[in-house]
Write a protein that binds this DNA or RNA. Structure first.
Length: 106
DNA sequence: ATAGTGACTTTAC
DNA sequence: GGTAAAGCCACTA
């Protein structure tokens, strides 16, 4: 494995680890996750990674939302995300989550 | 190396 | 409270 390859893989691993570290019943924004992962402004990158891992049951991608707690997901995936969040005890209203109540505080 | 793209964020209207 | 534009990072072609 080449160094560069390992590096980009490490970034992904970092993001996944951060998302996995989000406690149940809590949600975090892309920027928040990116910052904790060591990529202060790579919120877009975080989204891209999560998109690739939607089929992965080991990653709680549904706990990651927009900066205002709004679900920035396209398609029917948003409904699944809201449903998953509700199943964890997160109150989802009109495609939105109350960050003041369920926001992740690291 | 250049250009285009994306589940973002912030500021302004 | 929506819509628009610019800025940001990393990836892919």
């Amino acid at each position: 494995m080449s160094p560069a390859e390992a590096l980009q893989d490490e970034r992904v691993q970092r993001v996944l680890a951060t998302v996995d570290s989000i406690p149940p019943g809590r949600v975090a924004s892309y920027g928040q996750v990116a910052e904790e992962a060591g990529l202060p402004r790579a919120a877009r990158f975080v989204g891209s990674v999560l998109k690739r891992f939607i089929n992965d049951d080991e990653v709680p991608w549904h706990r990651v939302l927009g900066s205002d707690g709004t679900i920035r997901v396209a398609g029917g995936t948003a409904r699944d995300q809201a449903q998953l969040l509700r199943a964890e005890g997160v109150e989802v209203r009109r495609g939105r989550v109350d960050l003041a109540e369920c926001g992740w505080c690291p």
